[in-house]
């Protein structure tokens, strides 16, 4: 028996928005420790890794490990039926081919049950090595989304350069060049507005705007985003999901032909 209850169903709605542009389907691996998902996008360029810890749920029970293959477009249709303030419970029997999403209004006067068929997906898990990154940058997630969106107008790629002084995002193409520099903030009223840099070595890497824009769909999950970079290894873009977990996206830098 698997049962997971979230008072804020909006969290799962936002998680879905954060993955459905990259993934058509994915396996939600449920265990005693929580719900995990790891999947590459269709072109195998980027990797999405989601972790929702069992202790972050309002109620969580998973007697046997369960892998739920889910069509994300179908799940999205169901999640659209939930109000943001509804309480969500996901339920499945052991070895089930169905998952039930139950939504309850706050006053418990309306209860909705949606059953969805599960799929058998060939899942390939990748081993992500422990890495000490040369630069770890934290910045407001809305700022990151805005920068990536703005620079996407100039070209297919954005160069992210990090030094102790700050971060520079650059793009260039037929219409011209664009540079956006962010300095490390010295003092801000709110932590979520801060730009912080932990740097061992300066780094400058080129990334595909298209994927960064897809990662930025996670912006509603967290006020801050963390970028971890080292030369010649994939960038990690991480959004914390409240006290329940995180979503991480991995994208290899472009290399000169």
């Amino acid at each position: 028996m698997f049962e997971a209850r979230l008072v804020q169903s909006s969290i799962l709605k936002k998680v879905l928005e954060a993955i459905k542009e990259l993934l058509n389907e994915a396996t939600f691996d449920c265990s005693d420790s929580g719900i995990q998902l790891q999947a590459m996008d269709n072109s195998h360029v980027s990797l999405v890794s989601l972790n929702l810890r069992s202790d972050g749920f309002d109620k969580y029970r998973c007697d046997r490990n369960l892998s739920m293959g889910i069509n994300l477009a179908s799940m999205s249709k169901i999640m659209k039926c939930a109000g943001n303030d509804d309480v969500l419970t996901m339920k499945a029997q052991d070895n089930a081919d169905l998952v039930t999403f139950m939504f309850e209004s706050q006053n418990q006067e309306k209860v909705m049950d949606y059953e969805m068929k599960l799929m058998n997906l060939d899942q390939e898990h990748l081993g992500i090595p422990e890495t000490d990154y040369s630069c770890v940058i934290k910045l407001p997630s809305q700022e990151f989304a805005r920068i990536v969106r703005d620079l996407s107008q100039f070209g297919e790629s954005v160069v992210i350069s990090c030094t102790k002084e700050g971060i520079k995002f650059s793009a260039g193409g037929d219409i011209g060049n664009a540079n956006i520099k962010l300095a490390q903030t010295s003092n801000v009223d709110k932590d979520e507005d801060a730009v912080t840099i932990e740097m061992q070595e300066p780094v400058s890497l080129t990334f595909a705007c298209r994927y960064l824009n897809s990662f930025a769909k996670a912006t509603p999950l967290s006020p801050q985003v963390q970028l971890s970079m080292s030369a010649d290894v994939p960038l990690v873009v991480e959004y914390k999901i409240g006290d329940i977990g995180h979503i991480r996206y991995y994208l290899a830098p472009k290399i000169e032909d």
């Binding site: 590459m40 072109s43 195998h44 360029v45 980027s46 990797l47 390939e124 898990h125 990748l126 081993g127 992500i128 090595p129 790629s157 080129t206 595909a208 290894v233 994939p234 991995y250 994208l251 290899a252 472009k254 290399i255 000169e256 032909d257």
Partner: peptide, 14 residues
């Protein structure tokens, strides 16, 4: 022209 490597070139299948 810059090339986009696959993520599988960095992370091996487990």
């Amino acid at each position: 022209m810059a090339l986009q490597p696959s993520i599988t070139e960095y992370f091996a299948t487990r």
